[in-house]
Design a protein around this nucleic acid. Sequence first.
DNA 1: CCGCTGACGTGCG
DNA 2: CCGCACGCCAGCG
Length: 111
Amino acid sequence: MPHHSRNRDQADQRLRATVDSLPTGRVATYGQIATEAGLPGRARRVGQLLANLETDSDLCWHRVLGAGGQISLPRERPAWHEQRARLLAEGVECDDRGRVDLERYGWRPDE
DNA sequence: CCGCTGACGTGCG
DNA sequence: CCGCACGCCAGCG
């Protein structure tokens, strides 16, 4: 197994772990997850990771939002509604346009 | 190597 | 507040 390939898996592992650390009822941005996992500036990579999740994955992908607190999926995709429903289900207010108040629900490490 | 695409982010008008 | 250009990074053909 090539070295760079291992690093990639390792990075993905850290990203997953970071997403995993999000408490119920709290949300974080893609960029925040990346930075927290030691990959500043790699927000798109977080998006890729989540986009490639298996449908049966346990990862709480719904707690990850775009900068500003918006659902980043295309509105027309079923997953958009799924994400909003999951957020509402755990008490996170999310308006009909998919926006969440980060001041209120944003996750900040160490609390 | 090139171009296209996407669950990103930021700056600007 | 919204759209848009641009920078960015990875994967794919």
